[in-house]
């Protein structure tokens, strides 16, 4: 596994990718799972909503991590998350009681709105 160490450290890593987008997508996915988890504590199964919450939640987390790891795929993960956020409204406890929907909708919009910029030193090499 290759680990790229940046001289700028944490701020440079954060600014080099749509950090807020990935964070919101992952948090929204976890929120969907948490809402379903509460139900799982009581019932042995939670039916369609439970299965959809786990599936959608996992996909949101994957989309968030993809946005962080590969910013070039932000359009794919952003559009996917936007569509899935609407699906979560009808399939997963009203989008995790609306909070999960809001987090993932804003996260997907942030992923689509992120524009990479390169410093002059990098442009010379290109």
């Amino acid at each position: 596994m290759t680990i790229a160490i940046r001289p700028g450290g944490w701020p440079a890593w954060r600014q080099g990718r749509p950090f807020a987008a990935g964070l919101l997508l992952a948090l929204g996915g976890l929120e969907l799972i948490c809402v379903s988890w509460v139900g799982l504590g009581f019932l042995r199964f939670t039916g369609t909503a439970g299965a959809a919450s786990w599936t959608l939640g996992a996909l949101f987390v994957v989309a968030g991590v993809t946005t962080w790891r590969t910013p070039a795929l932000r359009y794919f993960s952003g559009v996917l998350a936007a569509v899935l956020s609407l699906v979560s409204l009808v399939a997963a406890n009203l989008g995790g009681l609306l909070l999960g929907f809001l987090l993932t909708a804003v996260g997907s919009a942030l992923a689509l709105a992120w524009i990479p910029q390169q410093a002059p030193a990098a442009r010379k090499e290109a």
């Binding site: 290759t2 680990i3 790229a4 160490i5 940046r6 001289p7 700028g8 440079a12 600014q15 080099g16 990718r17 749509p18 807020a20 910013p71 952003g78 936007a82 956020s85 609407l86 409204l89 989008g95 929907f101 909708a105 804003v106 997907s108 919009a109 942030l110 689509l112 709105a113 992120w114 524009i115 990479p116 910029q117 390169q118 410093a119 030193a121 990098a122 090499e125 290109a126």
Partner: peptide
């Protein structure tokens, strides 16, 4: 451990116009 210089200088910003354009259809659909 790899030190990849050209990647070091990459940053980014969030376009407010793009953000609004991306969020509007989602909220409309919701």
């Amino acid at each position: 451990i790899k030190n990849n210089d050209p990647v070091l200088t990459r940053t980014g910003r969030t376009s407010r116009l793009r953000f609004a354009l991306a969020l509007a259809p989602v909220l409309l659909g919701a």
